[in-house]
């Protein structure tokens, strides 16, 4: 096997064939589906969940994970927060000419491991190679198929007083990745929270009928995800600044750079809106899992007239939170 990816690895010929055989099939499965243009799979319910995401993260290896782990966990989480059981994944690689094959192997291994851990099967794949300077290392698209489980799921029936739960500290992923690039000269002893949440969230749905909605606050962070829920379902949500769990280190970097942790990406956190009388039960379930040990209630639904997210400051005043508007630039001074 070559040490570096060349354009010929993507031209569909002999090198593509070997790359797929030696790197992908080797890690992902018996390769029977590689004989066909599409994989043929069996599902257990006629209502399925479908989601897709491309991963373009930089650096591709970061404390707590890699683009490979992330590409599986990210799509698994999108299915899990939708209340579906993740079953199948496809993956599409876009690789830059010159990319080290050893790195590719590690990424594929990370994907295979995370898939095994979560119980999803990677059933189809694709590899394209682009010229040097037409990508930044490697990009991965994963598309996930999940099946809904009978009599289980999110009600989408919101009530005033519903609790807003976050499953742990926010901003860990954003800060871990940002500082891992090395450009900022900041070192932070924290890992990305990158993790698949399907087992934990399945447990929540198994035991609580009071779950209204679940979301994973990835790009755009906690604030943006909550704004979307508020707008989409026309509910007023209020969160308390002082209750939002943020690691000291994350706070420190945010202070240095002028970032707001509410808008930092997370890759192993869930937001769960749940009926008031079930909040403690859900918190208890979450805290049984390492991914949920810091789960807390951060706010409540306070109205059903206006799609709006409010933040209450420690002084007790409130302000509206919006979506992130424009990439966070470090402040001038």
């Amino acid at each position: 096997m070559e040490k570096f990816i060349s354009l010929a690895h993507g031209d569909g010929g002999e090198l593509s064939h070997r790359l797929i055989r030696d790197v992908f099939i080797n890690a992902f499965g018996d390769g029977n589906e590689a004989m066909f243009d599409a994989a043929s799979v069996i599902i257990s319910n006629s209502k399925i969940a479908v989601t897709t995401d491309s991963f373009v993260i930089k650096p591709i290896f970061f404390p707590g994970g890699s683009i490979g782990k992330l590409a599986v966990a990210g799509t698994v989480n999108d299915l899990a927060v939708s209340g579906a059981k993740p079953v199948y994944l496809t993956c599409g690689f876009i690789i830059e000419e010159g990319f080290p094959v050893a790195d590719l192997r590690q990424i594929v291994l990370d994907m295979a491991n995370e898939a095994r851990k979560t119980g999803v099967v990677i059933v189809a794949g694709d590899t394209k190679v682009v010229e040097r300077g037409s990508a930044d290392g490697v990009y991965i698209n994963t598309t996930g198929i999940g099946v809904y489980q009978p009599n289980m799921g999110c009600s989408l029936e919101f009530e005033e007083g519903d609790a807003i739960i976050v499953s742990g500290t926010i901003g860990d992923h954003g800060i871990a990745v940002l500082t891992a690039r090395g450009e900022l000269g900041i070192t932070v002893p924290i890992n990305s929270d990158c993790a698949s949440l399907n087992t934990m969230l399945d447990e929540v749905l198994q035991h609580s009928k009071g779950v209204r909605i679940m979301r994973d606050p990835t790009r755009g962070g906690l604030a943006t995800t909550l704004v979307e829920i508020a707008e989409d379902f026309n509910i007023t949500m209020k969160i308390n600044e002082i209750d939002v769990p943020v690691k000291g280190e994350v706070h420190g970097v945010c202070d240095l750079l002028g970032f707001d942790p509410l808008y930092l990406a997370n890759e192993g956190k869930a937001i769960i809106v749940v009926a008031e009388n079930e909040r403690n039960k859900v918190i208890d379930i979450l805290r049984e899992f390492p991914e949920g040990e810091n789960a807390v209630v951060i706010g409540t639904i306070i109205g059903k007239e206006k799609g709006q997210l409010l933040l209450e400051t420690p002084l007790g005043s409130k302000r509206i939170l919006n979506r992130l508007s424009g990439t966070m630039f470090p402040r001038i001074c």
Binding site: F4, I5, S6, E97, G98, R132
Partner: peptide, 8 residues
Amino acid sequence: LLDSKIAG
């Protein structure tokens, strides 16, 4: 030469 091209 292809190796060199791949290397940038």
